[in-house]
Design a protein around this nucleic acid. Structure first.
Lengths: 337, 337
DNA sequence: CTGAAAGCGCTAACAC
DNA sequence: GTGTTAGCGCTTTCAG
C-alpha cells in the first residue's frame, strides 16, 4: 500500500486539499461536519502526515536537538530523561548528538543546525569549547545551555550552584579535619569547572588554610592518563582530602586509592560530584554533591519551549540556578552538613 | 541574512538549479570546473542544504530512531554510545524516544514512524510489549531489535546469551554453596527475561536442586513497590542466593538487604546483570553478568545501515548473539568462574 | 555536460 | 466554509 496523502483524502471526499489540511489541523474555518468526515476517513485509511512536507512549508520541524559530551554519565542520562519528558508532552522530537568531548565534532554538529533541521537546541558543551560557532548559533535560533555553559555567550543558561557547591564540599572536608585538600578539575576552560575551583579557593581562604601549590589537578578525557595523573598527584601532594568535580573523576579516585592502597576516609577523605544512584552502596559510601540533573534537563527544555511558543520571550536573558545538595556519607568524616 | 538556497547559487553563477544540485552531490555528469565554482560559492555564502526539502523529494531522511525504555541505566546509555558512534560515522541523525516502560507510549511512537520521519529503527521493547504494531513496523521499514527483542516478530535481532548467562550465574551461586536461590525478573512477557529464567531453571535441574515454589519474583517498574515485593519475598523464602536480572534490581537488592540487615554475601549471595562501572566499588563489590552494551548498540546500528545501503540485504534473517561475561566479585563466595 | 520542467506533500494567502 | 493557487527547497527525469 502506497502512502496515503492529503490529496487522496481530498479526492475521496470531493474536497480540496486545503480543506483537508485545515480540517486535520483543527482550523476553525471548517464546519464540524466536514471535519468529522475528514477525520473519519483519515483514520480509516490510516493517514499519517508527512512531517517533512509540513516542515518544509512551515519552516519549523517540531524537533529539538540535545548536544552533550557523552551519555554514559548519570548526570546526562538523567538530564535527557527530563528533556525527553517535556518534549514528549509538547509533541516534539528529540535529536541527540554526542560531541564525545571533542570540540571539532561539536562544531560540525552545530553547523548542521543552520539548516533548519531543528527548531531549538539544548547544549552542554565540551571541556574544550570556546565561543566560536556558539555566538552564531544563539543568534540563529533558540538555544539553552545547561550545566556546562559557555560564559562568554549571552544566552539562556540553566546551571547548578557550582561555586557554592564546591565551597560547601571544601568546608565539609575541613570540618572533617582535612588540611591538605586537592581538587580534581575536568577542564581549564569550562566555566563551571572554574567556578567550582573558585568556590574551593574561597573556602580555603575563609578557613585560613593555604592553597597548596598543586591543589588543583586538571584532568583529561582519557581515563588511563587520568589514572596516572592522579596517582602522581596523590603521592606528591599527600592530600588528606579530595574533591572530584565529575562523576568519572569520583570513580577514578576510588580506583587510584585502591591501587595505592590508601584507605578512604582514613588516608584520604573523598567527596564527589556525582549522580550515581549507587553512591550510597560504594565502599565506602561516597559523600556526594548531587546535582538536580533531571530538573535541570526539564528546566532547560521548558525554557526552550517557552521561547519556541512565543517569539517575544526574552530567552537570552533567562538564567536559572538550581541548587545541588551535599549528601554526607562515609567517604568523609564530618557528619554534619 | 536569509537562508541561502540552491536557487541563489544558481542565479549568482548563471547556472540552473539542477546543475547546482548535481554539483553539490558530486554527480559525475558535472565538469570538474563548474563543480569547483559551485563548491566555492557555496562555501563563501555558507550554504547549508535544507534537509527537509531533500528528504521530501528523496523520500529518505538520513535519520534513524532509537526507541528504548529509559536512558538512566548503564546498559542503555552505553548502547546509545555504540549506536551514535556508527550513525555519526555514516552521516545519519539519531532521534531518541523513551517509552518509559509504557506499552501505550511505545505504540504512539511506532505509529509516528509510518510517516517516513525515519529510515530505520533500533528498538529495545518495554516489559509489557506484545507483537502488536511491531509486525507492521517491520514490514514497513528496516528494524533491528536489540537486547529486549520480541520473539514473535520475525526481524533482525541483536541479543546477548541470556539463557547461558543466567545458567552461569546460577552455577556460580551453587558453587558458592547456595541452595535456595531466587531470581528477580523484570517481566513475565519479555523473551529475554524468560530466557534468563530458563537458564536459571536448567542450571538448578542440572545440579539436582529443587526449584523453590517462589523462586522467581516478577518485579514491576515502580521501585517503591519492588522494594516491598523483594522484602516480602526475601523474608518468606529465606534465599541464600539471588540473581537480579537487571541493573535496577541489583541496586534494589542492596537496598533491601540494608533494610533487612542481611549481610552480603554471608546471609545472601548476590549476582546482578549490570553494566555499572562502579560495580567493583560497591560494598560488597558486586558479582556481575556484564553485557556487551556498547558492542550490541554498535552491532545493531551496523546491521541497520547495511540494510539501508542495499535493499536486497536479508535484514529480517539476521540474528547475532554477543556473549556476556561473568565477573566474580565479593557479593558471591565462589571465586572461580 | 547543462537546463527546463515537474513535482515530493503540505500550508497559507486569497478568492469566492 | 470551501476552493484556487502558489509555492517551501530540493532532486530527477528527460531534452538538448
Amino acid at each position: 500500500m502506497e502512502n496515503v496523502t492529503i490529496r487522496m483524502l481530498a479526492e475521496r471526499l470531493q474536497l480540496s486539499t486545503a480543506t483537508i489540511s485545515k480540517a486535520l489541523n483543527n482550523s476553525h474555518e471548517i464546519s464540524e461536519e466536514t471535519r468529522q468526515r475528514v477525520l473519519a476517513l483519515a483514520a480509516e485509511l490510516n493517514y499519517v502526515p508527512n512531517p517533512y512536507a509540513s516542515s518544509l512549508r512551515k519552516k519549523a520541524s517540531n524537533t529539538i536537538a540535545v548536544v552533550i559530551p557523552e551519555v554514559a554519565d548519570s548526570f546526562f542520562a538523567e538530564a535527557i530523561n527530563g528533556i525527553e519528558a517535556v518534549a514528549q508532552e509538547k509533541g516534539y522530537h528529540v535529536l541527540i548528538y554526542l560531541s564525545h568531548e571533542n570540540c571539532q565534532k561539536e562544531q560540525t554538529i552545530l553547523k548542521d543546525f543552520q539548516s533548519g533541521r531543528v527548531d531549538g537546541v539544548l547544549i552542554s558543551v565540551t571541556t574544550e569549547t570556546t565561543a566560536t560557532g556558539l555566538e552564531q548559533l544563539v543568534r540563529d535560533k533558540p538555544v539553552v545551555f545547561f550545566d556546562r555553559v559557555c560564559e562568554e555567550v549571552k544566552a539562556a543558561k540553566i546551571t547548578t550552584d557550582d561555586a557554592a557547591a564546591a565551597y560547601r564540599a571544601t568546608t565539609h572536608l575541613i570540618a572533617g579535619g582535612c588540611r591538605r585538600i586537592g581538587l580534581l578539575s575536568a577542564s581549564r576552560q569550562l566555566s563551571i569547572s572554574n567556578k567550582r575551583a573558585e568556590g574551593f579557593q574561597q573556602a580555603l581562604l575563609d578557613h585560613q588554610l593555604p592553597l597548596l601549590p598543586n591543589a588543583i589537578t586538571y584532568c583529561t578525557n582519557d581515563s588511563a592518563a587520568n589514572h596516572q595523573l592522579l596517582k602522581t598527584a596523590f603521592l606528591e601532594n599527600d592530600y588528606d582530602g579530595i574533591i572530584a568535580t565529575t562523576e568519572k573523576l569520583s570513580t577514578a579516585v576510588y580506583e587510584v586509592c585502591e591501587a595505592l592502597q590508601w584507605r578512604i576516609p582514613e588516608d584520604l577523605q573523598v567527596i564527589g560530584f556525582s549522580n550515581l544512584s549507587t553512591a550510597r552502596f560504594l565502599h565506602p559510601s561516597l559523600t556526594t554533591i548531587t546535582q538536580p540533573a533531571f530538573e535541570m534537563g526539564k528546566a532547560a527544555a521548558t525554557l526552550l519551549f517557552r521561547a519556541l511558543k512565543s517569539n517575544n520571550f526574552p530567552l537570552q536573558q533567562q538564567q536559572e540556578v538550581i541548587p545541588s545538595s551535599l549528601i554526607a556519607r562515609n567517604s568523609t568524616l564530618a557528619k554534619d552538613k
